[in-house]
């Protein structure tokens, strides 16, 4: 199987879907002629032209709303946010119109758009460029959100997101763009709402999503090698819909859970998952559920401190040891 980057996997998904459906178009700042701020869309404009790959002015509210309006008539726009942080100036469009129009119309409308872009910290750019709003998205019934942790997942989930008839956010990660994974050449899709067990184990369940799943994978190897702790790692992939069953089955097996995410802890995704575990696997727990999240402050600029603020291997190992104490 070819090894390709996370970036290349997204590009392949976009290109395949542009070819698959004439109504799919990509829009966003610098996506066409400049080849994408992070080169995710490199070459697509050259190949598919102005109609399918569209540069926008710096007007997130206008082009998000435009995409929503267009989707009502069957266009399937994939909207790139240069950073998910910038979606905040389009909150009314995304969090009122994309999420609620279907409901407020009693089911007469649907909004098949994809909103994609990097949603991560760890890049030494300060608080305005480091948001991880998957929890905010998941808080809006009507929206769906996925956080792919690797190239294989991002390709399969992106393609599914584009074909889905509801609005789907795909949260990418700039720190993963250059990383490589094996991705098959033949076409595949990954269903929303299906978690992936990245590693089977018996002592402790770690639940993570996005890049944190990859960090947790490394931590799990260290925990095995240095502490003899056998970790089962559940990569959520999809936040809403959520694969509750896989989480619960794993926790019931191991009796312990550590929840890892880059979100700030208050009302983070793992707050919901923690509730789920205590409600539905209470009798199986041998220890309290622990969490490793971003340290609760605006994202700090200074690199050594930011590297400590968001979950890293060391903090995950510390959290795991607490679960087993």
């Amino acid at each position: 199987m070819p090894l390709i980057t996370y970036r290349e996997a997204i590009k392949q998904a976009l290109a395949e879907e542009i070819e698959h459906d004439e109504n799919v178009c990509i829009m966003g700042e610098e996506v066409a002629q400049y080849n994408g701020a992070y080169k995710v869309t490199e070459g697509l404009w050259e190949k598919y032209g102005d109609k399918r790959v569209i540069d926008t002015p710096i007007s997130e509210a206008a082009f998000s709303g435009l995409a929503i309006g267009a989707s009502c008539l069957g266009i399937r726009p994939v909207v790139e946010m240069m950073f998910m942080s910038f979606s905040y100036v389009a909150i009314d469009q995304l969090f009122n119109n994309a999420s609620f129009c279907r409901y407020m119309s009693g089911g007469l409308m649907n909004v098949p758009i994809v909103v994609r872009g990097p949603a991560n910290g760890g890049t030494n750019v300060g608080a305005t460029h480091s948001h991880t709003p998957e929890n905010m998205v998941a808080n809006h019934p009507g929206l769906k959100v996925v956080c792919p942790s690797n190239a294989y997942d991002v390709k399969g989930l992106m393609k599914t997101a584009i074909r889905d008839n509801d609005p789907v956010f795909v949260m990418e990660n700039t720190l993963l763009y250059g990383e490589k994974w094996e991705v098959p050449e033949e076409e595949y899709l990954i269903e929303l709402g299906v978690a992936n067990i990245l590693r089977e184990g018996s002592d402790l369940t770690i639940v993570a999503h996005g890049r944190c799943a990859m960090i947790a994978l490394k931590a799990a190897e260290t925990l095995q090698a240095q502490h003899g702790i056998n970790v089962e790692l559940v990569d959520l992939r999809s936040i809403r819909p959520l694969d509750e069953e896989t989480i619960l089955n794993s926790v019931k097996k191991t009796g312990r859970a550590l929840l890892v995410e880059e979100n700030k802890p208050f009302c983070g995704v793992d707050a919901q998952i923690s509730h789920l575990i205590q409600l539905k696997a209470f009798d199986y727990l041998d220890a309290p559920v622990h969490r490793v999240s971003a340290i609760d402050a605006p994202q700090i600029y200074a690199k050594p401190l930011e590297d400590w603020q968001i979950p890293n291997e060391e903090r995950i190992i510390e959290g795991a040891l607490k679960c087993l104490a």
Partner: peptide, 12 residues
Amino acid sequence: GQTPLGAGLAFA
């Protein structure tokens, strides 16, 4: 809030 949507309908 409806004004970008109106533009989108026309875009389509």
